[in-house]
């Protein structure tokens, strides 16, 4: 389960990252850690309790991997490939996702709240029962995506298109939708603020 170790650095309340006694900020050799991490992730297909809070990954290809019960809170992922990835109970809240591809990914019971998502792609992606509340999402298409029971409450959208998406039981209350566009998506089955419904 989501059992995590505290960082070994004195007085640090951070969470130790996977296979280390230290949090991301106190890694003795961050470059060596990242190289080792890349090799470990490349060598497996299914991972549980891979905690990467606060870590910065760039250019990792995690396509086809499965991650369960993992805390990536505050992580910054840039240019990573998540094609066909499976996330179950992955916590990537208060983080940053830039130019990451989630084509064909299956993401469920996961949290991306308050995360900044820029230039990513969610194409043919299942995002089931996920929390993207207060996320700031820009230049990111959701195309042929299932967003069943996923929440975007209080989220901010800029140049975000929902095209041919299943929005059944998804929530958009209190979101800034001025930069969102919905096409061929079942908005009538999603929850919006009353003002929008009455438009």
């Amino acid at each position: 389960m989501i059992v995590r170790q505290s960082c070994a650095a004195e007085g640090c309340g951070g969470i130790a990252v996977w296979n280390s006694a230290h949090c991301a900020a106190h890694l003795p050799d961050a470059a060596a850690y990242l190289a080792d991490l890349k090799a470990r992730l490349a060598g497996g297909s299914s991972f549980e309790a891979v905690h990467l809070s606060g870590i910065a990954l760039e250019g990792f290809d995690l396509s086809g991997k499965e991650f369960v019960c993992s805390d990536w809170s505050g992580a910054s992922l840039t240019g990573c490939a998540f094609t066909g990835v499976k996330f179950n109970l992955v916590f990537l809240d208060r983080g940053r996702l830039a130019r990451c591809r989630f084509e064909g990914a299956k993401v469920k019971w996961s949290v991306f709240a308050e995360t900044e998502i820029t230039g990513c792609e969610f194409i043919n992606t299942d995002v089931f029962r996920c929390n993207l509340n207060a996320a700031r999402i820009a230049n990111t298409p959701f195309r042929n995506a299932t967003l069943y029971s996923t929440r975007f409450i209080g989220a901010h959208f800029q140049a975000v298109e929902f095209e041919n998406c299943n929005l059944l039981r998804s929530h958009f209350e209190m979101a800034d939708l001025s930069g969102a566009r919905f096409s061929n998506s079942n908005t009538e089955e999603a929850f919006f603020d009353r003002e929008r419904i009455e438009e």
Binding site: S110, V111, N131, N133, A134, R151
Partner: peptide, 22 residues
């Protein structure tokens, strides 16, 4: 960092609700 699992909808954390739940 207490993780909240509610009766409906996705999980969340105490700090997120404190900050964002209008």
């Amino acid at each position: 960092d207490t993780i909240i699992f509610p009766g409906h909808g996705p999980p969340t954390r105490v700090c997120l609700e404190r900050a964002d739940n209008a």
